Amino acid sequence: MLCALRLGPVRIGQLGRVIPGASKKVLTQILRKFESENIVVRIDLSDLVLHVEYQLHQEVRESVEQLLDHVSKWGASFMALQGKASALKERM
């Protein structure tokens, strides 16, 4: 869910498509919990039609981006090591 939110404001229906099988009720409960813990911001854009979006707090978004950057770098290093190990096995 945090990965989907890091790209910018999203509606609950969009989150439901990203997380198949999650009910709207459960997503709403999670988002309310995140909002109470200052992880997400609820943006009420309602005029005549109910329109609510959620986005990560700036500090949380930066933290998630740093975490994903580290995981990505680790993954690249791991894949490089796997390639080297495979090359060594082939030589033997």
Rank of each mutant, 00 (worst) to 15 (best):
M1L: 15
L2Y: 01
C3Q: 14
C3A: 12
L5P: 05
R6T: 06
R6V: 04
L7F: 06
G8D: 00
P9G: 03
V10Y: 00
V10H: 05
R11L: 00
I12Q: 03
I12K: 03
I12W: 02
G13F: 05
G13S: 10
G13I: 05
Q14R: 04
Q14T: 05
Q14E: 13
L15W: 00
L15A: 02
R17L: 04
R17A: 02
V18K: 07
V18T: 07
V18W: 03
I19S: 14
I19M: 15
G21V: 02
G21Y: 02
G21H: 00
G21I: 03
S23A: 02
S23F: 05
K24D: 09
K25G: 07
V26F: 14
V26N: 11
T28G: 14
L31W: 10
R32Y: 09
R32K: 14
R32E: 15
R32S: 13
K33D: 10
F34C: 08
E35S: 11
E35T: 06
S36T: 08
S36D: 10
N38E: 09
I39R: 03
V40P: 03
V41T: 10
V41S: 07
R42S: 09
R42W: 08
I43K: 05
I43Y: 01
L45T: 07
L45A: 15
L45D: 13
L45R: 15
L45I: 08
S46K: 09
S46D: 05
D47E: 12
D47W: 08
D47V: 15
D47F: 11
L48Q: 13
V49M: 04
L50T: 11
L50G: 05
L50R: 08
H51L: 10
V52K: 00
E53Q: 11
E53P: 03
E53F: 03
Y54C: 01
Q55K: 04
L56N: 03
Q58H: 09
E59K: 09
V60R: 01
V60A: 00
R61W: 02
R61A: 11
E62Q: 14
E62C: 10
S63G: 05
S63R: 09
V64Y: 09
Q66M: 13
Q66T: 11
D69F: 05
H70Q: 12
H70P: 01
V71S: 14
S72R: 11
K73D: 14
G75W: 00
S77A: 11
S77Q: 13
S77K: 11
F78H: 10
A80C: 01
A80Q: 02
L81P: 03
Q82K: 15
S86H: 11
S86P: 04
S86N: 11
K89T: 14
E90K: 10
R91V: 13
M92L: 09
M92N: 10
